[in-house]
């Protein structure tokens, strides 16, 4: 299972929610799935996502192909604090082989 950490306004999609602790959704990643597919499957609107998306601590994009990551972190569009013009998201997750 992958721990999907949700932040800011996206915390409403978490099953394990606490106002003062982690907000996590445990998900199973399908073989060959991209981050965008997973987000769609979970009903998280793409327009609420920003550029600060992480797969196993690495900057990612909705196109990033997932291969059994342990941890995904999604920040909403109003929390893109990392300067986006330096971001070159990996198209493949690090353990995609």
């Amino acid at each position: 299972m992958t721990a999907l950490h949700l932040y800011g306004k996206l915390r409403r999609f978490a099953t394990e929610q606490s106002p003062r602790a982690a907000s996590i959704l445990r998900v199973r990643v399908e073989p060959g799935e991209r981050l965008g597919d997973l987000v769609d499957r979970l009903g998280i609107p793409r327009e609420e996502l920003g550029s600060n998306l992480f797969v196993d601590g690495r900057y990612a994009s909705l196109e990033t192909r997932l291969a059994a990551p342990l941890r995904i972190g999604l920040f909403p569009d109003d929390m893109q604090l990392l300067y986006k013009w330096y971001f070159r998201p990996q198209e493949e997750s690090p353990d995609a082989g």
Binding site: Y7, N52, G57, G73, F75, D78, Q80, L81, L82
Partner: peptide, 16 residues
């Protein structure tokens, strides 16, 4: 983001 969460909005981002 800064008006709502303060600069500590960065804690989760940098941690992630």
């Amino acid at each position: 983001a800064l008006n709502t969460y303060g600069t500590a909005v960065l804690v989760n981002i940098i941690n992630e």
